[in-house]
């Protein structure tokens, strides 16, 4: 087992420098079919975001498969330090996406879990290679739409100003910070504004928001402030955890009136493109 794992096999700084100056991410060509991994938050709280993702994928000509046996990526247990529990749930997920299609996820942090943490989770177990192979197939849904599907959208909505919250996992795990911007760029009536301190965490962090609720609340309060200072009509996020956190705080914070409207990026885009109306596929 290679233990000093961060040391690249060939420690040639020159080649690394070259590699670093070009994007490291590789995308497949547009496949016929993809799996969608819905995530538990989308399942229970934001099904519209999931449906929007599905509709957008199919609009781009990709057939969506949704194995009904999927549940949760295991992140809640993983970040709480219950590795065995996380592993068993993760293993169940890995076994139900049998064909070699990409697996797209409408939430950055769940995607981050499956892409970057599954390998660590299974290190030293018989499933390590399986986890490595599985993680290669994970894409964030927005990112997949932008970089793999050549999606073209028509904006059917009114002029509006939107602030985008980019999540930590999309930034630092999935490296997909730009995809939301690129997708929204297709909507000609949408002006995008960037809030101050855009790279700072909203304070969600799963159990952290409950265990250290005062710290978490202070963080989300600032996030709401920066977002509402943009004077945008609404804010978007492609991460359900952040969305739940920021929207929840904005709704409670009387000073952040403009921000009452917050939704998942995918719901917003599908609605503007006229693919979803009142939460129903058209």
């Amino acid at each position: 087992m290679p233990v000093h794992h961060f040391i690249p096999e060939e420690p040639l700084v020159e080649s690394l420098t070259d590699a670093l100056s070009t994007p490291l991410k590789l995308y497949p060509t547009k496949p016929e079919k993809v799996y969608v991994f819905g995530t538990c938050l989308v399942d229970l709280f934001y099904p519209e975001a999931g449906m929007s993702g599905v509709v957008l994928l199919e609009h781009a000509g990709v057939e969506v498969l949704f194995p009904q046996d999927q549940t949760c990526c295991g992140q809640p247990a993983y970040t709480s330090g219950y590795k065995e529990e996380a592993r068993l749930v993760a293993l169940a997920q890995m076994s139900i996406f049998g064909e070699d299609y990409p697996i797209v996820v409408p939430s950055g942090s769940c995607g981050g879990m499956m892409k970057t943490h599954y390998p660590r989770l299974f290190e030293g177990t018989e499933h390590h290679q399986q986890a490595l192979d599985f993680s290669e197939r994970i894409y964030e849904l927005t990112d997949f739409l932008v970089h793999v599907c050549d999606l073209s959208l028509e904006d059917k909505g009114e002029r509006t100003k939107i602030a985008l919250h980019t999540s930590c996992s999309s930034r630092r795990e999935m490296k997909t910070t730009d995809s939301g911007k690129l997708l929204l760029g297709q909507l000609k009536n949408v002006a995008l504004v960037e809030p101050k301190k855009v790279t700072e965490c909203c304070g969600f962090g799963g159990a952290f928001s409950v265990r250290h609720s005062e710290i978490s609340s202070a963080m989300v309060k600032d996030k709401v402030m920066h977002l509402s200072n943009t004077k945008a009509d609404a804010f978007l996020s492609s991460d359900c955890g952040c969305l739940m956190n920021i929207k929840g705080a904005a709704e409670k914070d009387k000073s952040a009136l403009t921000l009452r409207r917050g939704e998942h990026l995918l719901s917003f885009v599908a609605r503007r493109a006229g693919l979803i109306a009142d939460g129903v596929e058209v």
Binding site: G38, V42, D43, L44, F45, Y46, P47, G50, M51, V54, F66, Q68, S209, V210, S213, S217, V220, K221, M244, N245, K247, G248, A249, E251, K252, D253, E281
Partner: peptide, 25 residues
Amino acid sequence: APWTNKRTLPKMAKKSFHQQMKART
């Protein structure tokens, strides 16, 4: 609490994504 001390709770969906996808399929 403590979630709702500083935030509202998101509303639970009437039909889950699984259910909607099943119906769609």
